[in-house]
Design a protein around this nucleic acid. Structure first.
Length: 460
RNA sequence: UCCCCAGUAGCUCAGUUGGCAGAGCAGAUGGCUGUUAACCAUCUUGUCCGCGGUUCGAGUCCGUGCUGGGGAGCCA
């Protein structure tokens, strides 16, 4: 007989004479003549309650089933006589697939997130992490659905890159050279002998690839792993994370902001609708205000504010900040949080940032003081999206590169896109894990990614 | 990289002025019960993070290292 997933079984409208389920024991409660076994198979948050009567031939073994053990149970789905659940499974056979000894680290109680990080290989077996990674899966699907419904094409941007013009942070070196015996030439490592014949890194952004494809396919997006070798020790940074990067031809900054807002609203609404049960767990145990926050994100219009106005508001706020704010200085975390959490109390898009604090590829505004950049800031997380309209004018782009002392010859293919049929285009990067933090209320990014990579931590 | 906090039983944590190492949970055993992280009784469990120092005596004080966490910067 084919096994039925518990998620489907619990949705049954009628009793079923004969079903088979397989899963892991969460807890067992013995009664006089039978034993209650709670079994979870990961298909949903809820367990199925198994009634195993003491007339079963292996009943003695059944009563020694410990948390974490694996079982295969066949029997009859019947309405429960107890009050905690609609259905229960009256067992005809309980096959013990594997017994977890008492050294099994997960107990029938709450563990701290810090402890569960040390057993990241087992934590998806808990309610909270099971729910987290089911939501992560649904959210990934929702991203593809959102873009596909809008006619965007999915681009697989490379993970290994020889491009040194991504410029979004410190990079991880990729090499096949023997590190204990490096070839030298003129006192420097001779990368001509390396696999690709030049210095190569893991990607920090798929943007430049996405731009090339937007200028061919129109609307595109990337969704893949991204690597930053920053020595960051915060609850919002990991060395390997997933980023969503749409890029649109014939689109200006306003269209870019529209897409960002529409996307966050869609994704939030999607999860609220499709992952109700799992979201309720977070609303109950992780963040009591979660539903209110998510409704606010999904329904209220995002405030749009030019950088200069943001600076004015901060100056007039009368609030004492650790860092002073004035035109030309980047907004600090404390400034961003004040604006989104206290002043506007909703998501906020700050745009038109000073030229001096933004990268070369952002489009120069007519005031020559600012570029067409935009950041989406949300309560609790801060920056969740960073994007811009790209500089499509070859001459302006080259001037900016000169100002910033960037070697143009290395960017020949990027500049080609501005030589041949250049058009206005825009895009942004969304931190997938940060969105998950927003949606689940989980406060540490290490807890929304299966096996987090942070400085000096890569056990799994 | 900088600032702050923590590290004691399998887990969560208490440990007073420097004076015999503790509780709850988990586990084991027995009991009770259509139970809901069941309940009741009994029992087991220690490199007090490592190294060095002060002291008659250090879980406790000092130095140092490691690990974890929070914040800053950088960013997504």
């Amino acid at each position: 007989m084919k096994r039925t997933k518990i998620v489907n079984l619990l949705q049954s409208k009628t009793p079923i004479d004969h079903v088979l389920i397989k899963g892991w024991v969460r807890t067992r409660r013995d009664s006089k003549s039978f034993s209650f076994i709670e079994v979870n198979d990961g298909s949903c948050l809820k367990n199925i309650q198994i009634i195993s009567d003491n007339t079963l031939e292996n009943y003695k073994n059944i009563t020694s089933l410990s948390t974490g053990s694996a079982v295969s149970v066949s029997g009859k789905l019947a309405e429960s006589q107890g009050s905690g659940q609609k259905w229960e499974l009256i067992a005809e056979t309980v096959e013990i697939l594997s017994v977890a000894p008492e050294t099994y680290p997960l107990q029938k109680k709450r563990h701290t997130d810090e402890f569960l990080r040390t057993i990241a290989h087992l934590r998806p077996r808990t309610n909270k992490y099971g729910a987290t990674f089911r939501i992560r899966s649904e959210l990934s699907y929702a991203i593809h659905k959102f873009f596909r419904d809008k006619g965007f094409k999915y681009i697989h941007s490379p993970v290994i890159t020889g491009s040194d013009c991504e410029g979004a942070g410190e990079m991880f070196r990729v090499t096949t050279l023997a590190l204990d015996n490096l070839p030298f030439k003129d006192g420097k490592t001779d990368f001509a002998e390396d696999f690709f014949g030049k210095e190569v890194n893991l990607t920090v952004s798929g943007q430049l690839s996405a731009e090339m494809f937007a200028l061919a396919l129109g609307d595109v997006y990337t969704f893949g792993p991204t690597f930053r070798a920053e020595d960051s020790h915060t609850s919002r940074h990991v060395a390997e994370f997933w980023m969503v990067e749409p890029e649109m031809a014939f689109c200006d900054l306003k269209g870019n902001m529209n897409l960002a807002e529409e996307m966050i609203k869609f994704l939030t609404g999607f999860v609220l609708e499709e992952c109700k049960e799992d979201i309720e767990l977070f609303a109950k145990y992780v963040d009591k205000k979660l539903i209110k926050t998510l409704d606010n994100v999904a329904t209220s219009d995002f405030k749009r504010l030019p950088y200069t106005s943001a600076v004015e508001i901060l100056k007039k706020s009368g609030k004492k900040f650790e860092y002073d704010i004035e035109f030309g200085k980047d907004l600090q975390t404390e400034h961003e949080r004040y604006l989104t959490e206290q002043h506007f109390k909703k998501p906020l898009i700050v745009y038109d940032y000073p030229t001096t604090i933004k990268p070369f590829y952002m489009r120069l505004n007519d005031d020559h003081q600012t570029v067409a950049a935009m950041d989406v800031l949300v309560p609790r997380i801060g920056e969740i999206i960073g994007g811009s309209q790209r500089e499509e004018r070859l001459e302006v782009l080259e001037n900016r590169m000169d100002e910033m002392d960037l070697p143009k010859e290395n960017y020949w293919w990027y500049l080609d896109s501005r030589r041949f049929g250049s058009v206005e285009h825009s895009g942004f990067g969304l931190g997938f894990e940060r969105l998950l933090m927003l949606i689940t209320g989980i406060s540490n990014i290490r807890d929304v990614i299966p096996f987090p990579r942070t400085p000096s931590s890569i056990e799994f």
